[in-house]
């Protein structure tokens, strides 16, 4: 049982690491601040979610598990709000968005 649990936990954590990598690649490759915000907000939050799920399989007490979920929820809410603030301020400062040329 522990073997299966450990394997599942490891798989989730590695999947999480993959999304963090994708987020950083997007941050470097995407053409403007708006698209980069998409990459960071969505990929990193999914990455954290998977890491938290992987760690949840290993918790030893209820309060520990709930704390992990609280941290995830907090980062999720804070990340979405921060992304909105940055995008709004960028628009206010007339930072043009990148468009594909036909």
């Amino acid at each position: 049982m522990t073997v299966i649990l450990n394997a599942l936990s490891a798989a989730l954590i590695l999947a999480g690491a993959f999304f963090f990598l994708a987020g950083t690649v997007g941050l470097l490759r995407f053409p403007d601040v708006y698209t980069r915000l998409h990459a960071l907000t969505k990929a990193d939050n999914l990455g954290l979610g998977l890491v938290v799920l992987g760690l949840l399989l290993q918790v030893e007490s209820l309060s520990e598990g709930v704390k992990l979920l609280v941290i995830w929820g907090l980062v999720l809410a804070a990340g979405a709000t921060a992304a909105h603030l940055v995008a709004r301020t960028a628009l206010e400062h007339d930072i043009r968005l990148w468009r594909r040329r036909e």
Partner: peptide
């Protein structure tokens, strides 16, 4: 997350 990871 999957969508944006694929695009990046």
């Amino acid at each position: 997350g999957i969508d944006v990871a694929w695009r990046s």
